[in-house]
Design a protein around this nucleic acid. Structure first.
Lengths: 350, 350
DNA sequence: GACAGTCTGGACAACGTTGTCAAAACAGGT
DNA sequence: ACCTGTTTTGACAACGTTGTCCAGACTGTC
């Protein structure tokens, strides 16, 4: 029996797949040819009902499960796509990821994903690992600003869509949010409510969205002919300690701000805590909506975007490419929506 | 998926994967043997510096990337693990997922994940798809209560760890939270603050954690010799509309409750909204901590668990199994922690 | 210069599946 | 019985990699 030979070999050499029955084993037991088993497993036509029954019986008896590694190797397509983003657990990216998963599922594909932790090296490592797995396509929220390393992959036919941030130094599909307009409108909203000294706390400008939001802030200030004191602009790390320090510096400095614009949901959440401790009310508008924003006191005014929508758009585009859409790379921009809830309408405390 | 998916480039040249160079191509260009390329790619010893350089040059010139499908087929190990849970975007599961990813990464493995949407059929479909891919191991938050379909897979050597809920009808490793004690203590906390009529809103008891939490609620009530009116117990769907209706029924019924215990974070969030609309304050304790719970008014008292810790424990155990730990299936139970913040310490209103 | 011992390098056979193609089995019509 | 056309079936060669194993090409030693 080949069965015993294989198990012995497996045990000594260090088990490949435990030792699983293959189509050959199924075929032997059913007394048919290998290809016939393949036909049954894949529901291909041209198998008599009687043979099919014998094969099925053999399959369940042996607990056979097709080895997709071999199938993938042979067929050249994996029916899986990769998703690389900053942090799977971030409340902004989690729905995006889920949306991509849903679309993939609708196309019969599995999703492999990884978090880059905003580290360009890790992004590249992940992306290339996915390419080595021969994923059919990639959805990337880039951490790097140079994606030339992807050129051979794209040339080889890996469909690639960038979301939330544009690719660096290559042409590719991108699905973005109008961060510039969103930030500009959010800051203009504060100005419209009487604020003249407004702070901005957000990510480093090397991140595209952060850069755009800073530009939006500056455009709104400039549009109202308001000066920007250097201490009001705090682009940097967005860990709570740093955000807190930045906020306190601009609130207690020589030119104290009466309002703050937060560059992303992490910053907003930290600022909610910091501002709640202050005696005087400070106005706040945050980029990104977040759960329970409306239940805080005051409820938080936000520039909202729809991460699930972003993910859906990107994944839809990806699968259109996989189905052979050949038009040049496309840029899709989603608008933001200002949701006034209270914190952004507080008057300046003078 | 049909043939059309393959890119036009692939179709015209007749090769798969776009048309990518293989080790053979690299070898030909470098004027060496196939196996020598393999050695260079895998950093195996026994290649002279000069040959290595020639091969490297050839690799970058052709944009070669090893095809892991073939490698996997040959080696029998995929260096990837599967994670199946209810909803990747749920704030409870997102950190769990991220923690599993981190552990996988530390072991050089990729993570493939899918959401079961609490549908047993979908869970099985996903899990078996992962098995067909020959993932080395599985972390499962089960939706189904019968996992006998996994028996052949486990027998074949797929390491499997269940998290948050136990497996059904099979023996396997499990990492759980002490839901019973958590709920019992949470309800006891309300009783200690003077409440006698307390409602429970949570998931259907077919979900193990929900069942345990209901038991905990009943144990606390029984322990204080308090009767439970039938309208106070609302296990069912936990969509906002349903939760709202249940809450209003128990708040406005003949035996109105003065406090509510929420069975999970989704319910808690909905209840925060419902209770905020009431004239009289209603006490609230929720299972699961959530962001900004401390910033609401009143701040929300919760029975906290640590989803990231759960994920880490499960993934660590999985990799210990993959490294050959052969002891019998193990049950790990994590404790919960009551965090009193205000909403659970409100006195009864009459 | 012959000899053992080490380093390199390459031919070849797997791994488990699917595509191709031709043989075998069967049906229906004479 | 024969031929013709259709359906079922199985042998065999890929797919791109890695493990095994052997052949040359070098060392250093006598």
């Amino acid at each position: 029996m080949p069965e015993t030979v294989r198990s012995a070999a497996a045990r000594t050499t260090g088990t490949r797949y435990g030792n699983r029955p293959t189509m050959k084993d199924v075929a032997a037991r059913a007394g048919v040819g290998l290809k016939t088993v393949s036909r049954v497993v894949n529901g291909e036509p041209g198998v008599s009902p009687d043979t099919e029954r014998r094969v099925q019986e053999s399959i369940t008896a042996l607990g056979f499960r097709r080895n997709d590694s071999a199938r993938i190797l042979r067929k050249g397509r994996t029916a899986s796509i990769g998703l690389v983003l900053e942090d799977l657990a971030d409340p902004f990216y989690a729905p995006l990821s889920r949306a991509v998963e849903e679309v993939a599922r609708a196309h019969g594909a599995l999703l492999i994903n990884g978090s880059s932790a905003e580290d360009p090296g890790r992004e590249q490592e992940l992306v290339l690992a996915l390419c080595a797995r021969r994923v059919d396509g990639l959805v990337i929220v880039p951490a790097s600003d140079d994606h030339r390393y992807l050129e051979p992959e794209i040339a080889a036919g890996v469909a690639t869509v960038f979301v939330d941030r544009p690719p660096g130094r290559i042409e590719a599909d991108q699905v973005l949010v109008d961060s510039f307009a969103g930030a500009r409108d959010g800051v203009a909203h504060l100005i419209a409510h009487g604020h003249r000294r407004i702070g901005f706390i957000g990510d480093l400008p090397r991140i595209h969205t952060a850069h755009e939001r800073i530009r939006g802030y500056e455009a709104a200030m400039a549009g109202a002919r308001l000066p920007v004191h250097e201490s009001w602009l705090a682009p940097g790390a967005t860990d709570p300690a740093r955000v807190r320090a930045d906020a306190e510096r601009m609130l207690d400095g020589p030119e104290p701000v009466t309002a703050v614009f937060a560059g992303n949901n992490r910053v907003t959440v930290t600022l909610v805590r910091v501002l709640a401790e202050r005696r005087r009310p400070v106005a706040l508008v945050g980029f990104d909506d977040f759960e329970l924003a409306d239940m805080l006191s005051p409820p938080v005014t936000v520039v909202a975007q729809d991460p699930a929508q972003l993910g859906r758009t990107a994944a839809d585009l990806l699968f259109r490419r996989l189905e052979g859409a050949h038009d040049p790379p496309r840029l899709t921009t989603h608008p933001t929506r200002l949701i006034a809830r209270g914190s952004g309408e507080l008057p300046p405390h003078s």
